[in-house]
């Protein structure tokens, strides 16, 4: 009888990154934002001319800069978790710190963007497009602030001694939340700044 060679030993077993609780939270947040994404296009279809005209007043370059900051922070946070798995605490902590700095950069850019809009007379009450713009980006900004608190905690947490499996799991949970913040911005950037521009 010929027995096929066993390859299972060379393959990693499936692993849920972080605690299951963080995934319940992420799933809930994604359901909420999914409804908001669909709702935005629904209302956009009803007032297309207004939405297209209002969208022209958004600063595309600042939106692009913020997207690059979010992507870079996610890359740094993913790298921080990988460094922790290799027991490289200094590198891990530095990557979390740089990820935090990208988050701070995002808030600074948002401050300039909001200021620019308000000076030009575009506020929450201007029209439906700007109402969605401020509410959606405001909700996302709250996520960024919470996420930065998480990253600051992980930065300190990753400085100390040896990374146990439990400690890695905590890092993975915090990192997953930050990647959610990145993911939500990727979709918001497309819907608010890019879709429908002629």
């Amino acid at each position: 009888m010929i027995v096929a060679p066993v390859r299972a030993s060379t393959r990693r077993l499936p692993h849920i990154p972080g605690e299951l609780g963080i995934w319940v939270f992420i799933a809930g947040d994604l359901v909420l934002f999914s409804l908001l994404f669909v709702l935005f296009l629904q209302y956009r279809a009803g007032q297309e001319a207004l939405f297209v005209e209002s969208q022209r007043h958004l600063n595309q370059a600042l939106g692009l800069v913020n997207t690059l900051l979010m992507l870079s922070s996610s890359w740094l946070v993913a790298s921080a978790v990988q460094a922790a798995r290799r027991q490289q605490s200094q590198i891990s902590s530095r990557c979390f710190a740089l990820g935090f700095a990208c988050g701070a950069g995002f808030i600074v850019v948002k401050y300039f963007e909001y200021s620019e809009k308000i000076r030009a007379g575009f506020t929450l009450n201007s029209n439906d497009f700007f109402m969605y713009y401020y509410v959606y980006t405001g909700m996302h900004l709250i996520h960024v602030v919470i996420g930065m608190g998480v990253l600051a905690t992980l930065m300190v947490y990753s400085r100390s001694s040896r990374f146990t499996a439990e400690k890695i799991q905590h890092l993975e949970s915090g990192a997953s939340f930050w990647h959610l913040v990145d993911l939500l911005w990727i979709v918001l950037f497309a819907l608010l700044y890019l879709v429908g521009r002629s």
């Binding site: 849920i16 990154p17 946070v77 990647h179 990145d182």
Partner: peptide, 11 residues
């Protein structure tokens, strides 16, 4: 982002 950064690829 979901499969690589969030590491769902290995989940």
């Amino acid at each position: 982002v979901i499969f690589e950064f969030m590491e769902i690829r290995g989940a």
